[in-house]
Amino acid sequence: MKQGLRTFFLRHETILLLILVAEWCYFNSVGRHFGSLDNSFDIVRHSVEIGLLAVVMTPIILTGGIDLSVGSLLGLCAIVFGKLWRDAGWSVGSAAMGTVVLGALAGGLNATLITWLRLPPLIVTLGTYSLFRGVAEAVTQGVDTFTNFPASFLFIGQERWLGIPAQAPFFLLVAGVVWLLVHRTTWGRSWRAIGFSPEGARYAGIPVGRRLATVYVMAGIVAALAAIIYTARLGQAKADAGSGYELFAITAVVLGGTSIFGGTGSVHGTLLGVAAIAVLNNGLVHARQPREVGGMLTGLLLILTMAASVLPKMLAKARPTGHATGRNTQSQTNA
């Protein structure tokens, strides 16, 4: 039992949960209104878009891939949504459908290049990162902004529904679906398998190409959904929407304990990661600390949580084996 307790405390999610609790307690004692329900809902509303991207980034990173293009795609989708609604005269509903289709196609482009040509995801999505943002800027010439959306549409970004922020159900739905896929289906297991070893997965009979393609298409669809929610929350769509969101999303996923090399990780870890960052950034405003500190602390947090989950293992391994052989086993497991 003692062993069980120890592994529990060494688990990434636990460390993160403790950090979250510590953050909460600290900000609660410093900021008078931090603990209020209004503020908690604010935190939720402000982190839905990044949360969506982070959740859907989790299976990608589980397969050992990465998607740098989600932030740019969010911008492109926001523009296309605005264009379909305002210039093409579509209703909000059909414009949203059209945007989701575009998201799926854009994700499909990433997927094709990555699976069919077997190109490294980092490079492919670095290219589409520029491409998607560039097309968004070119289409609007940077100037065009879409506003004056109907109130019924703005509702999902700004109002409450049954007492909770109206965008929360969308987020819960996506998070729930992705969680089930990752943790309760053979798909999730094959994503992990691919993350551990794509060749091994192939020999085990997993259709690696198709499984990989799904995660990128899924990311495209969810990025489109995030774009719609973003537009509803701000009441406007512009070509610079979502700049830099990919880094926030990746940070949250990694902070949540998913290995950047693939194979291990969890969706609930990612949710904790999103929460830790969101609470930190919100809390610092209540604690009246400069915003730059938030960025620095996020960076430090990232290194500390990773080090915290790696160090004990390294120490544990170094101790029993002692001298020469100790280093061998260690580097073999890490290779």
Binding site: H33, S36, D42, Q236, V285
Partner: peptide, 14 residues
């Protein structure tokens, strides 16, 4: 603009 929004809402709660 999204971040500006968040800060305003934060100040409302405060």
């Amino acid at each position: 603009p999204a971040k500006q929004n968040e800060i305003v809402e934060n100040w409302i709660t405060q």
